[in-house]
């Protein structure tokens, strides 16, 4: 789906990142992800996938090069701009990270409180997001009353409730059964179809092959392949 006419959402230009303990996480990474794309980030453990994500959300700072995310220049991003950057994205975690004392509705509404949304907006958006992930009837349930797949769908609803321009999903199928994995990616595909850029980190090769999307492969801190159509 990437095209020259499209607008870039994420751009890595000659990015280097080495941790304090000497581990070289990323070396000379160059990459462009356009608005509206669905990209799988694949690679073995320790390849630099997590660092790649951490740099995008500015949990880690780059050593050299430049990263542009949604118009934010990461090399010169000020501390107080970090929350503004993060409000442009939704994050889905492998371990769901739902708050156990809050019900489904409250969990999904949580990011909306952070941006100071009104009660009316919260009701409207949360209902929309829950219906989109097929959990409209479970709004009052607590996380422990849901299956792994359902919990991850709540996580998805929470990620998209603030209408982010992109969703970053870090191994979203890692803790759900294989059938549910496909449902999760189906949902992400539907969200992508409605205009949200999706960046999904995974190591499930079969899943990647079955969905016909762009695949970026990282190994030992380098991008070793960047193919369209689920090829790697």
């Amino acid at each position: 789906m990437s095209s020259g006419a499209s607008q870039p959402l994420i751009e890595f230009k000659g990015v280097y990142k080495t941790y304090d303990n000497g581990t070289k996480a990323l070396s000379d990474v160059n990459l462009r992800i356009d608005k509206g794309e669905f990209v799988f980030i694949v690679g073995p453990s320790g390849s630099g996938k997590s660092t790649f994500i951490k740099l995008i959300i500015h949990e880690e700072k780059l050593d050299a090069g430049e990263i542009l995310v949604n118009g934010f220049k990461m090399s010169s991003l000020r501390k107080k701009e970090v929350p503004l950057l993060r409000r442009t994205m939704g994050i889905v975690f492998q371990d769901f990270r739902l708050i156990p004392t809050m019900n489904v509705f409250e969990n999904v509404a949580f990011p909306m409180h952070v941006v100071g949304a009104s009660k009316r907006e919260i009701r409207k958006r949360v209902s929309y997001a829950l219906n989109l992930v097929g959990l409209g009837r479970k709004a009052r349930s607590l996380p422990r009353e849901l299956s792994g797949g359902e919990q991850q769908r709540v996580g998805l609803a929470r990620a998209l409730v603030n209408k982010p321009s992109m969703i970053i999903a870090d191994e979203p199928t890692g803790n759900v059964d294989p059938n549910m994995s496909y449902e999760i990616v189906d949902l992400l595909t539907e969200i992508n179809r409605r205009g949200t850029t999706i960046l999904m980190v995974t190591h499930e090769h079969q899943l990647v092959r079955d969905f016909d999307r762009r695949v970026v492969m990282i190994e030992t801190g380098h991008i070793v392949a960047d193919n369209a159509g689920g090829v790697f």
Binding site: K80, P83, L85, R86, R87, I91, R97, I99, P111, V114
Partner: peptide
Amino acid sequence: KLEISIMKAVGATNGF
């Protein structure tokens, strides 16, 4: 801790 990590992920300021 969980709430704080989610808050930071969704763009809450330190003040919030």
